[in-house]
């Protein structure tokens, strides 16, 4: 069985990740995945590159805890989160969340739950380069609202 969490510079391959997640588990009837990619615009400005910083150690621990929470809340069999760090370009893949379950509803929900959780709790920070220079990306209030849908409090301001 592969690790549940990977923080890496290199790209990932969705089909390989999903094959590994379902490997040998005949209970699985549904696989749901989300892939986040780098957009070429943000806040109206062209984005040339995106650099991702993270907090080694805490990142892995926090995502492991999110997967534990998802396993406790939803009837799912396995979950995998891959998040890239370092310098990325528009159209690059940034993040993968994949979940398996017997029926689709649970894996759809768990996948969205994990993404909402990750957006607001996992210690990653994006810095984008635009024609006006480099800037840190601001956190979105809508991400906190997404977390609240699951009955989870937003991080303290």
């Amino acid at each position: 069985m592969t690790a549940r969490v990977a923080i890496q510079h290199q790209d990932f391959e969705l089909s390989v990740e999903i094959a590994a997640l379902r490997l040998g588990d005949a209970r699985v009837g549904a696989v749901c995945s989300f892939v986040g990619t780098v957009r070429d615009r943000n806040e109206g400005d062209a984005v040339a590159t995106l650099e991702l910083e993270h907090y080694p150690g805490m990142t892995e621990k926090s995502i492991e805890a999110m997967i534990d929470a998802a396993m406790a809340r939803f009837d799912i069999y396995a979950a995998r989160v891959v998040h890239r760090v370092g310098l990325l370009q528009p159209m690059d893949q940034i993040v993968l969340v994949a979940v398996t379950s017997a029926h689709r509803g649970e894996s759809f929900q768990a996948c969205e739950f994990l993404m909402d959780y990750l957006k607001t709790q996992a210690p990653f920070w994006k810095k984008e380069v635009t024609p006006a220079g480099a800037r840190w990306v601001d956190a979105r209030v809508s991400d906190d609202a997404a977390l609240a849908r699951w009955g989870l409090p937003a991080p303290t301001a």
Binding site: G36, L52, H54, Y55, G57, M58, K61, S62, H83, I94, V95, M115, L118, K119, T120, Q121, A122, P123, F124, W125, K126, W136, V137, D138, A139, P155, T156
Partner: peptide, 30 residues
């Protein structure tokens, strides 16, 4: 945002010998 020993914490968290404290802005991964 603050973390104590790599767990999100608020300002009331108690420090201990050798602990790891972190300060950072709201996260923007994903």
């Amino acid at each position: 945002r603050m973390a104590l020993d790599q767990l999100m914490s608020d300002e009331s968290a108690l420090l201990h010998e050798g602990c790891e404290v972190a300060f950072f802005p709201p996260v923007t991964g994903g």
